[in-house]
Simulated assay, not measured.
Amino acid sequence: MVISSETHTVSYGEEEGEFYYHRIHRTKPFERNNHYHGTYEIYYLVSGERHYFIKEKLYSIRAGDLVLINKFDVHKTSGHGDPEHERIVINFSDSFLGKGHPLLASGLLGMFNQDRPLLRLTVPEQTIIMQILNKMADEIRERSASYEHMLQVLLTELLIKTYRLTHSASLPANVSMNPLHQKITDVVKFIHAHYADKITLQGLSETFYISPFYLSRIFKEITGFTIINYLNLTRIREAQRLLTDTDLKIVDIAESIGFESLTHFDRTFKKIMNMTASQYRKFNSVP
């Protein structure tokens, strides 16, 4: 745990671990490259304004907004106006609340898979959420007996309150209509729909009527990825699903998601996941 009064930081756990809590107040420009992780994420903006790129859309978020990000969804925050802002991030794994989530109502985590990642909360709703988040910070600071169990209880309460808000909170902020962002959104959607096909920078350039150089530059600028890296990431995410949910041979999975050789697939999978496809299947197989 790290606590710094200078930056108002409360930090606990690891982003890819079972439970992670991080609160920070920043006064200088901050931008994190596009990334994804195998944990669920809850992002709450305490103050300030930010841009948030999630999967294929860019959102403008303001103080009091709550963002839900599913496992393996690509996302990135960046500045919007005054760089000063304060935010709280929580990540948690499937295993943190116990096998089968005994404390959770059936289907509760499905809210992370909805096409509505941003909730705009009223002041009373913000108060409810902040009370829970502050209690978590208190538990982390004090580390009283069974504090980890209390974090589980508080996370469960947060999830239930948030689930209720998905049915009552305001609609998400409008997606940015900046023509450049819209163009990249269309490119990302195209990659999601055609990742199994042969996709090249030249082909995308011709499809979207934009020069290869300019497309490559603005895609990296907005998403944080090169086009080939984003394409490979999309393909590997689908490979993860097929490795977990099907009995397809690895060579057949590689071919079905657009890799021309098993060697290239193996090399790409290991680079992104830090393990081989066979290891991933073994670790994620149901006993």
Rank of each mutant, 00 (worst) to 15 (best):
I129A: 04
V153K: 12
L159S: 01
F96K: 04
H101G: 13
L97Y: 08
D115V: 02
F72W: 15
I88D: 00
L97D: 00
G98H: 08
R116P: 02
A137Q: 11
Q114C: 06
T162V: 02
A169I: 05
I129Y: 00
M150Q: 14
T127N: 13
L97Q: 00
G98N: 04
T166P: 00
I90G: 01
E86S: 12
H149I: 14
E125T: 02
E139W: 09
L104H: 04
G81Y: 00
S78D: 11
L108R: 08
I128S: 10
N91W: 06
I160T: 14
S78V: 08
E139K: 10
I69S: 05
G81K: 07
L68S: 05
Q131C: 13
R87W: 12
S168D: 12
D115G: 04
S78M: 08
K135H: 11
P102C: 02
D115H: 06
A137V: 00
S95F: 04
E139R: 10
L109I: 12
L121T: 02
D94T: 00
H75Q: 03
H80G: 08
I160L: 15
E157R: 11
L118I: 15
T162W: 04
L119W: 01
D94Q: 04
I128F: 07
V67N: 02
E139I: 07
L104T: 11
L68K: 06
E125F: 00
D138T: 13
S168M: 09
I128M: 15
N70V: 03
D138M: 12
E157D: 15
R120N: 09
L68P: 05
M150W: 12
